[in-house]
Design a protein around this nucleic acid. Structure first.
Lengths: 340, 340
DNA sequence: TCCAAAGGTGACAGCGCTGTCAAACTCATT
DNA sequence: AATGAGTTTGACAGCGCTGTCACCTTTGGA
């Protein structure tokens, strides 16, 4: 049978309350007592009953990761990070997919969120795109008084968030392309409505313009982060007459970049000799593609980790509402230098 | 404030216990009372407090999915299936990675498992390969009296399991290759120690032999399910003199199959014209590869679903200890017919 | 020496729910 | 009308823990 706090208290010759204090690292326990209780607890292999503790404190020691159909790779790294942070603090992660793509109205989204959360007592919620941008969802969370951290590219209101600077990353990548001598740089946008979609596009535009060029509508197409959409838009870009055809294509994520490469090679274009390509995310795919894809590495694992950490201990070393983590430009083999 | 069972009881003019009975679909409540209580509960947006219920019943309504470094794709489908099954039954899924690869001794594995489970009160555990084959882990589970379902290719002892017939799948795939006229069929084995590794190999051998051929050691190499190992072993196979080189390679999973294709194309061999390739798992990768990979589709989602279901309701419609789900051979573009 | 403040400890209630068991009510049968 | 079996209901304890508050120590200063 599992040991209870009473067992420990009896064996240690102290009250339950003292044991409780020791277990929760509360002050006002003599060092000697503390050590003794700890020893007994270890000996008895005692671990607190979460349900009981939860009932008494109205905390659940559970954090929910809620997501809506993101890429498997993305979500699993977030998840790993969050789990690791939870472990350190004795929390656990429950995972709740919530498919809202087809749900249009704000009220309906709010309701769906409510359904999930009313059934599950969690101390905090990690929200990933696109959920983190739904006002309905955010509103439900605040009505339910549930803490939440958004894994999102930018702050909205005063919600805590963890993210990276998509704008600057896209800016730097575009600038890199410019430095390699590319003038006609195609761009495939991400899913409409995702905040990252806009930020990446903004970064691209800023770089193009700061390079003294102007953004050509002809070279920008709307994708939706899927491989399939990448295929469709890549075809449009590559079927342009040679003199107008881009010498480089910047896809808003790796899947679409992979699609570009695939279309290019079907059309007999060599990457990177005839066409440079870069992506965004640095999924495992990027490395396994041949040639290996030049892309932006997001600190996804770390975002999950920090998000959970902030939920568990909001006054940790970082007092700030939001945290911007560093990205990394992964220079690989899909971009050629036009100047050589 | 959240409504409690007492609120509902008062408003409905019955005792808490009656409300409790209604909520849990217990018998011996007059239909009229039942309906009335249900209405009030809905009106008050009442949802039971899981911690309290857990404390009273010593159930947690939590199921753990524990895994050790499997492929992301694999685990996320299992996870999805399990979550969906949990939702139907008011359960929740907590995810616990447990990295044991470097841990050799059985006792240490058992201890690691114990650490995780002692902290977390779960009603059941889903174990994926390779954890489901560790005696240490299994033993801990039984000592702790925690129900578990193994997502595994074959039964071991009397543990409940959910799986597919890897052996037959590999047999059928190999036979298909044989039917296409291939005589020299290379095989790249999976990670040593995974049960699936052996079963897939067995299926391959059976088919080869039943085709009147014999398994040549020269054509069988040991991989470990990783892309990298696939590269290494593919090279060995493809560097064989042309007369001995296989006309087809059956890799034990898609990642290694992708590696084979990559190596082949680097060596100037066309797939499928010069070399047929097939894999196992039908990951998304398989479809995105060009040419699209012929492979075996595992019912991964369904395995997760059934596993959770069995944990939640062990006497569901399936009384049996184990369930074997159907696979599907996905014929795509990487196998050519030598007879034409 | 005495007193206040701070440090250390324990008794006890109660978190929201369900299990147990006894009470009250129904209805068909003698 | 009385009996018994079955159905429906409720009172109450208690799951294992922590918050509150009161009590008993110590300590340091007047």
């Amino acid at each position: 049978m599992k040991a209870t706090i009473t067992d420990v208290a009896k064996k240690a010759g102290v009250s339950m309350k003292t044991v409780s204090r020791v277990l929760n690292n509360e002050p006002n326990v003599a060092e000697k007592t503390r050590a003794h209780v700890k020893a007994i607890a270890a000996e008895l292999r005692y671990t607190p009953n979460l349900a009981a503790r939860g009932l008494a404190t109205s905390k659940s020691y559970l954090i929910a990761l809620i997501y809506d159909n993101p890429s498997i790779n993305y979500i699993s790294h977030i998840q790993r990070g969050a789990i690791d942070a939870c472990r350190e603090a004795g929390y656990h992660l429950v995972v709740e997919p919530l498919y809202l793509e087809k749900v249009k109205s704000r009220a309906e989204k709010a309701d769906a969120m409510r359904m999930v959360l009313e059934k599950l007592p969690v101390d905090g919620v990690i929200l990933t795109p696109p959920l983190c941008d739904s006002q309905g969802v955010l509103q439900t969370l605040s009505e339910l008084r549930i803490k939440c951290v958004r894994v999102a590219p930018r702050n909205r209101g005063q919600q805590p968030f963890v993210g990276m600077d998509d704008d600057t990353a896209a800016y730097q990548m575009t600038q890199y392309l410019l430095e390699q001598g590319h003038k006609r740089i195609g761009f495939i946008k991400g899913h409409v409505g995702h905040a990252a979609t806009d930020m990446r596009y903004d970064g691209y535009c800023r770089a193009i313009e700061s390079g003294g060029l102007s953004v050509s509508e002809q070279l920008v197409f709307q994708g939706d982060f899927s491989f399939e959409s990448g295929v469709v838009q890549a075809k449009k870009l590559l079927e342009l007459p040679v003199s107008e055809r881009p010498t480089a294509i910047f896809a808003s994520n790796d899947d679409m970049a992979a699609a570009v490469i695939s279309v290019a090679s079907q059309m007999g274009l060599d990457v990177p000799a005839d066409l440079s390509v870069c992506g965004f995310d640095d999924t495992p795919l990027a490395r396994n593609l041949s040639p290996a894809l030049t892309t932006v590495r997001q600190p996804i694992y770390k975002m999950g980790f920090k998000a959970a950490q902030q939920l568990i201990d909001p006054d940790g070393d970082q007092q700030k509402i939001g945290q911007i983590l560093d990205f990394e430009i992964m220079l690989r083999d899909t971009v050629s230098n036009l100047k050589n």
